[in-house]
Design a protein around this nucleic acid. Structure first.
Lengths: 239, 239
DNA sequence: GTAGCATTCAAACAAACGTTTGAACTAATC
DNA sequence: GATTAGTTCAAACGTTTGTTTGAATGCTAC
């Protein structure tokens, strides 16, 4: 059947993934990909139908692997708990740690993928986001249920919003090390390594947990204020 | 001097901003922009030099306005405090509320800009990110100092990281209403309006404050665990 | 060996891109 | 009214894009 097994197919996938992460998938031409992979230009259309087909294949390959890890962690947690509710920290770590650990992986291909994923989620063009959220739908449902059970006092609206906020914080945490260093001038430039996975994960987890368990907006514990004007003039507000 | 004042210039800026927000700035051709603006194709090169010049102008126009609002709010807070440290909630609100309120603005042009900004921050191509962080540098410095003063017990590293996490959460909060509704199947589809600015801002603020004031990673309050393997196999961990 | 299928390859395709050109038009200045 | 500078315009420029074509290759099976 397949003479070379799938050599050129995966070669193209690897090269495309790397270039996509570097330049974005629509600032990467097929000629760049096929040159980097040392294959013929037409190979992409032969194996993936079109460039869009290649992009989709790049995402599905890693996304399936990532979500399988998340589900495996959640399954083990729930089977160990024997019906009891999990702790919020357990649910969060099962969902977010595979992502962070991939982002800090030693294999450069895997590491390159995560920022690419985060970036493509905010692409409104749409065909790639549809594929991503389709691949995530089962995982999202499972973790949403687990969170609802872990926090029975928090209304569902709030949980879903906070889960969304956490996704954003994690996204920036991942793509953030060098971006942060250049945005504001980093006070500790002597620190060389890009934040080991462990310490970054701990930083992020304590932040996420703090946000997830924050007092509810209406509870008065947060010094909410009534600043409704978005012109900065006469901005007498902020408690 | 200027016969028509600056009609075509701002017409182009408005059309470009809208199209950039819709399709991203490199999936938008100059022919689309000039058609939408009903001006000649060459007008872009005449008024802005190049397409990159136009992109930069689109960002600078709104960014300057946004950061002026933030600085005005912070200035008033600090002058009212007369040297005392501000409350963390005050600093956060001065920084994030202008962004959220812009994103929920009734003027569609202003509202369209914020997701565009968030998306372009994660563009690695670079020339646009450089412009953005350049425009932000003063604001970042001021707010970082204010946060350091407001939270004297938290080490600087941690504050900067958490500030970064908050940026991510806010980014997702803004671009999130409809994305969230489609990603996981939203449990309350009868809610029509895209979350009024007030309630979204309150949701976000309580989350951000909870994350900002979370116990520090090393303090043991967070059930930290030692899950170092990112293969999901034998993942015995998570406390 | 030869038929048949899967894969690779060089070459060309039409379409779209950002930019440049040089002439037309407008409006104020001398 | 002629001159000048600022602005608009239609047309074309040269590249680069993703895709298609048809011949050449490699491998398996009869």
């Amino acid at each position: 059947m397949t003479p070379h097994r799938t050599s050129t197919r995966t070669t193209i996938l690897d090269a495309a993934e790397q270039l996509f992460a570097l330049n974005g998938h629509d600032n990467t031409s097929m000629r760049q990909i096929t040159s980097a992979a040392s294959v013929n230009l037409s190979a992409v259309n032969y194996h993936f139908g079109s460039k869009d087909g290649l992009v989709q294949a790049v995402f599905q390959r890693r996304l399936r692997e990532l979500n399988d890890e998340r589900l495996a962690l959640l399954n083990e947690l729930e089977s160990n708990a024997k019906g009891d509710a999990l702790k919020p920290s357990q649910v969060l770590e099962a969902f977010f740690s595979p992502l962070v650990l991939h982002a800090c992986s030693h294999e450069p291909d895997r590491r390159a993928f995560v920022p690419l994923l985060e970036r493509s989620m905010s692409d409104p063009g749409g065909f790639i986001r549809a594929a991503i959220i389709d691949e995530h739908s089962e995982v999202f449902g499972r973790f949403r249920q687990a969170l609802l059970k872990a926090l029975p006092d928090v209304p569902e609206d709030e949980i879903i919003w906070r889960f969304h906020f956490m996704l954003g914080a994690t996204s920036y945490a991942i793509s953030g090390a060098e971006a942060l260093r250049s945005a504001m001038d980093w006070p500790h430039p002597e620190q060389k390594q890009p934040e080991s996975a462990q310490v970054l994960l701990q930083r992020l987890m304590s932040f996420l947990l703090g946000g997830l368990r924050a007092p509810l907006p209406g509870s008065g514990a947060v010094p909410t204020c009534s600043n409704a004007n978005h012109a900065a003039t006469n901005g007498r507000s902020l408690s």
